[in-house]
Design a protein around this nucleic acid. Structure first.
Length: 113
DNA sequence: CATCTGACGACCG
DNA sequence: GCGGTCGCCAGAT
C-alpha cells in the first residue's frame, strides 16, 4: 500500500488536536505498526497541506530531530496545543481517528488535576 | 536488481 | 528509569 492512506488520515486530524503514530497505524491496520506510520511520515511530501506536526509519539512527545522538532512545537503551540515538558497532553489534545470526542476544551471527563 | 535509509513502540533486564 | 532488541514498509540511489 502506498502511504497515501496515512497522509489522508493525517489530513483529517482537526486543528488543535494531535494523534500518535501507533494510533494512526492501528486505525489503518498497518501491519508494520507504528513504524509504518513513521516511515510514511518520514517520506511525507510537502506542499500538500499535510499537518504532519499533529503527529506525535505514543507518549505525546516529539520524535523528529531538530530543527524540525522546534518547528513542530511552534506550529502546535500556534494551534493552541501547548507542550508540557516537551510533550503534548494526549489526555487533553489526543484525537481519536474513528471516534472524535466532543470538544472538551475545558471539560474534564473524570480526570481531575 | 541490491542496498540503504528513515518521524515507532512494546518488551525485557 | 534507561538502554538495547526486534518487528516492519516504501521510495531513492
Amino acid at each position: 500500500m502506498s502511504w497515501e492512506r496515512v497522509y489522508q488520515l493525517v489530513t483529517r486530524i482537526p486543528r488543535g488536536r494531535v494523534a500518535t503514530y501507533g494510533q494512526l497505524a492501528r486505525a489503518l491496520r498497518l501491519s508494520g505498526g507504528a513504524r509504518a506510520v513513521g516511515y510514511a511520515m518520514a517520506a511525507c511530501p510537502g506542499g500538500r497541506g499535510i499537518p504532519w506536526h499533529r503527529v506525535v509519539g505514543a507518549n505525546g512527545c516529539l520524535l523528529i530531530a531538530e530543527p524540525h522538532a522546534a518547528l513542530q512545537r511552534r506550529l502546535l503551540e500556534s494551534e493552541g496545543v501547548p507542550l508540557e515538558a516537551g510533550k503534548v497532553s494526549l489526555e487533553r489534545f489526543g484525537w481519536s481517528p474513528a471516534r472524535p470526542p466532543a470538544a472538551r476544551t475545558r471539560r474534564r471527563p473524570a480526570k481531575r488535576r
